[in-house]
Design a protein around this nucleic acid. Structure first.
Length: 861
DNA sequence: ATTTGAAGGACCC
DNA sequence: CACCAGGGTCCTTCATCG
């Protein structure tokens, strides 16, 4: 709040309090009549919508500063001393990472765009000139800067400041060309240099310096003159131990100069001590003000002095950043080349409320964006609409699509929906952005057939496969193709099935949709689709789970499910009530108890089998160490649950129970033909492991060989798998569950019950055999629904039984996720859903199927 | 408890 | 006369749940 003198005479000289970016002294601004500039900028700005918005932002910032100030004032001295301990520890840790062995050079072309324009039109030389339009200037040459003209200044203001200013439109192809020339030079010094933008780069010149026995300064000189001779353009350079410092240094003797900061801790600290924080990349106007006005931090050195405040008031990562700045630390390694994360297109126009006009603008932008994506060969699944209202308020609205796309139709369709929801509104800018690119396309490795490519080729019968760039018009996945529901062709890909599903949904939407250029008459809102069927439709894009690729080897190796499920001495009840294995007596009416008992033997068997092989995966060891050091004292308590039938609760959530729809194995098979036969979803297909997963028909065929009659029924998201004795028709096992979205994981297969009836005992196959088949059908069903994960609850009944059960499921391929103990509030939901306490366990469906593939594929024979 | 998506901002050139 | 871009990245916060 120490605004000092300027705030006192606000009324007489109001422009002084109007802080624009142009006020900041940057290179080339020496000798500028700053007050005059500021006054002109103010005069031209005041009262405008833009200005009002700036004022609004200003007050917001003031509030933020005040809030921060208050918070800092409230800190007790014991708080501060605690945070000081954190700071001290952090300083030691950060200091330990200090690496003074590298020499980084930051090059920055001088007034790049302007310089290039002058190069291609020498008559511009010596005259004030700006690249950009009347609305916005990208770069001004140094002659123009003398007038106070600078980048990011609107053209009309610049013209006021410098009436003779020459405007040159931007021409990126030209700049790209010269940029490339300069980069060729950079490559000679560091083949892996990091391109910051067209006009700047970071070079690790450690090796060159060493090899040629030259200092950083000498290399910088040479590089700059080399750039000049290759391009005719001047540049400035900064040399320092890390990139952050190098960047600061390159600005010091701009233009056409350089500054070298010795790789020596005390030199660095001296340099940093007086450095205004604003010079640091990443600290902009807002942060500067907050730090300065609320905390009194002006120089980088202050960051260390007031470290405890920083850690008390900012997030860990921010505080870490600030502190490391204060210590003069920065990145010293060369990171992996980063690929772009989004692509966007936006246009400003005179604000309008005209919906028809807005829709047509939107269509243009969608088209442009689509074209750009096609040029780049990108497909993405998150679409963000950006609006700037007439009052300069920025809004963004995003949707994640079910499929990757780059087609303008898809983009426009969804963008229109987003825009429609905002109307009526007066808008001056519309932008569209696509993000969440498909990995398959992005790190496209021509030698590897990726799923996306597969689909792309399949859908549109491509010819030039070796073309790395995806040709737009044909290759892009479109949701709009009118697909018929023909299941007759084997060519139909799984994704096309989803197309069909989506189109069903889409056509519903379309019924509600009002064509952009028509009067909006139909106002009825789309009903929230929460019914089960919608859940099935709304599954995510289907792609290999790369995040688990690590597990693949292990799961492939220790997959001997065959032995696991081979019948060993089956359990049965002597005389109907006595266990043949241990002699315990349980009357036939004790169904549950008998079930548990047989499970017990099962688990025991497994334990014996397992005794040799140690389980290689310890789920908890994968935990990432997070900053939070909350001791999760989770009482692993029992508390017998009131064994509710979980299904009842679920029915409460989905009350539209009518009747189960029967799906015969034949129908299942038919659906399965939709899956491309060769499509291998395994992330590690390099290994010579089974190439295909057991299909539903594999499982069914295999089960029939075992005299098992399997059936799956579905009702919306619910499913029930029943296994019957093919001869007697008696039910011997069933699995029930639901396919539903789970937070952050798309759809999951929720396995509710797996129950084997006493009929099982009379079969000559082991309990496990039946259980496996019933389970496999359920898992496969989940797979077909697009689930990636299966979840179940290993019910807690008794210590012994529970641990065996957990071990059993783990052996199959499930991993413990959490304990549902009933002692935490959060467990209520789980208990309701699962109907008890126990251990929640998850499994990757793909891995399960992969693991089981041998069993079913073999027994097919 | 963990992860994700959405919205909004700050910042850079 | 009025007129303040467009392409990105990264961060934080919040919601959420059957």
């Amino acid at each position: 709040m120490d605004n000092g003198e300027s705030s006192t005479n606000n009324s007489s000289r109001p422009w002084e309090s109007y802080n624009t970016v142009f006020t900041n002294a940057k290179a080339g601004m020496e000798g500028v009549d700053k007050e005059k500039v500021q006054r002109i900028v103010y005069e031209l700005s005041k009262g405008s919508k833009y200005f009002q918005n700036e004022e609004r932002k200003e007050t917001l910032m003031k509030q933020k500063i005040e809030h921060m100030h208050d918070r800092s004032a409230k800190l007790s001295s014991s708080d501060l001393s605690n945070y000081q301990k954190v700071v001290d520890r952090r300083i030691l840790e950060l200091e330990a990472t200090r690496d003074l062995s590298r020499i980084w050079l930051h090059v920055d072309m001088d007034a790049f765009y302007a310089a290039v324009e002058t190069l291609s039109n020498p008559s511009l030389g010596g005259k004030p000139m700006a690249v950009g339009g009347l609305s916005m200037i990208s770069t001004a040459n140094y002659e123009a800067r003398k007038f106070g003209v600078r980048a990011a200044m609107p053209g009309f203001i610049a013209r006021k400041l410098c009436p003779d200013l020459i405007f040159v439109p931007v021409d990126f192809t030209k700049y790209t060309h010269y940029s490339e020339l300069a980069r060729k030079v950079f490559r000679n010094y560091d083949p892996q240099f990091i391109a910051g933008s067209l006009d700047e780069a970071y070079l690790d010149i450690t090796e060159v310096c060493r090899e040629r026995g030259l200092s950083g300064g000498e290399i910088a000189e040479e590089l700059r003159s080399s750039v000049y001779s290759e391009t005719g353009l001047t540049c400035s350079a900064g040399v320092a131990a890390n990139r952050l410092l190098a960047k600061v240094c390159s600005d010091i003797n701009k233009p056409n100069g350089q500054f070298i900061l010795q790789n020596d801790r005390s030199t660095v600290m001296t340099f940093i001590s007086s450095l205004p924080i604003r010079k640091i990349g990443g600290i902009g106007k807002v942060t500067e003000h907050i730090l300065k006005d609320a905390l009194g931090i002006k120089t980088c050195e202050d960051m260390v002095q007031k470290g405890s405040l920083l850690y008390a008031l900012f997030s860990q990562s921010s505080a870490d950043f600030f502190l490391s700045v204060g210590l003069g630390l920065g990145e010293t390694d060369t990171p992996q080349a980063r690929s772009r994360k989004s692509i966007s297109c936006e246009r400003t126009f005179s604000a309008t409320e005209d919906e028809k006009l807005l829709y047509s603008k939107l269509a243009e932008i969608a088209e442009m964006l689509s074209d750009d994506m096609k040029k780049e060969g990108l497909i993405a699944r998150t679409l963000t609409l950006k609006l700037k209202t007439a009052t300069f308020e920025i809004r963004s609205r995003a949707v994640s699509l079910k499929r990757y796309t780059c087609s303008s139709e898809d983009i426009l369709k969804h963008a229109t929906k987003l825009l429609k929801a905002e109307l009526p509104v007066s808008v001056r800018l519309i932008g569209l952005r696509m993000s969440q690119f498909s990995d398959e396309i992005r790190h496209s490795d021509p030698s590897q057939e990726t799923i996306t490519k597969f689909i792309v080729q399949k859908d549109f019968s491509r010819q030039n496969l070796d073309d790395n760039k995806i040709d737009a018009s044909k290759n892009c996945l479109s949701n709009d193709e009118s697909m018929s529901l023909s299941f007759d062709t084997h060519e139909t890909s799984y994704d096309q099935l989803k197309d069909v599903l989506e189109n069903e949904e889409q056509s519903q939407l379309d019924a509600n949709k009002v064509p952009p250029n028509q009067e909006c008459t139909r106002k009825e809102e789309r009903p929230q689709v929460l019914e089960g069927d919608a859940l099935l439709i709304k599954h995510k894009e289907y792609k290999p789970d790369t995040s688990h690729s690590m597990n693949d080897n292990s799961s492939a190796q220790n997959s001997e499910p065959v032995t696991l499920f081979l019948p060993i001495e089956p359990l049965f009840w002597i005389d109907g009530y006595k266990c043949n294995l241990c002699g315990i007596e349980l009357p036939p009416s004790f169904v549950e108890e008998r079930q548990e008992h047989s499970d017990f033997h099962l688990a025991q068997r497994l334990q014996n089998e397992e005794s040799g092989s140690s389980s290689s995966t310890t789920p908890t060891s994968k935990r990432r160490i997070l900053g939070k050091e909350k001791a999760n004292s989770k009482p692993k308590k029992q508390k017998q649950s009131e064994k509710d039938d979980a299904t009842c609760h679920l029915v409460l959530y989905y009350p539209h129970t009518i009747s189960f729809q029967e799906r015969t194995p034949e129908e299942m098979k038919m659906a399965l033909n939709l899956i491309p036969p060769k499509l291998n979803l395994s992330p590690s297909n390099s290994l010579g492991e089974p190439k295909s997963l057991p299909s539903m028909s594999d499982i069914l065929t295999s089960s029939r060989a075992r005299n098992l009659d399997l059936k799956i029924q579905t009702l919306g998201p619910f499913f029930r798998v029943t296994g019957k004795n093919a001869d007697t028709g008696g039910e011997i096992g069933r699995a029930e569950g639901v396919v539903r979205p789970w937070f952050g994981q798309g759809l999951v297969l929720h396995l509710d019950t797996i129950r084997l009836t006493k009929e099982t005992m009379k079969m000559d196959k082991s309990v496990l055999g039946v259980g496996l088949y019933v389970g496999a059908v359920a898992i496969r069903h989940g797979y077909d629904c697009g689930c990636r994960t299966a979840q179940l609850l290993a019910i807690y009944d008794s210590d012994l039984y529970h641990s065996k059960l957990v071990r059993f499921y783990r052996r199959i391929g499930f991993e413990e996720v959490k304990e549902v103990s009933g002692s935490l509030i959060g467990d209520m939901a789980d208990m309701l859903v699962w109907g008890g306490v126990g251990t929640r366990m998850d499994a990757n469906i793909h891995h399960l199927l992969l693991k089981w593939s041998k069993v079913f594929l073999k027994s097919n024979v």
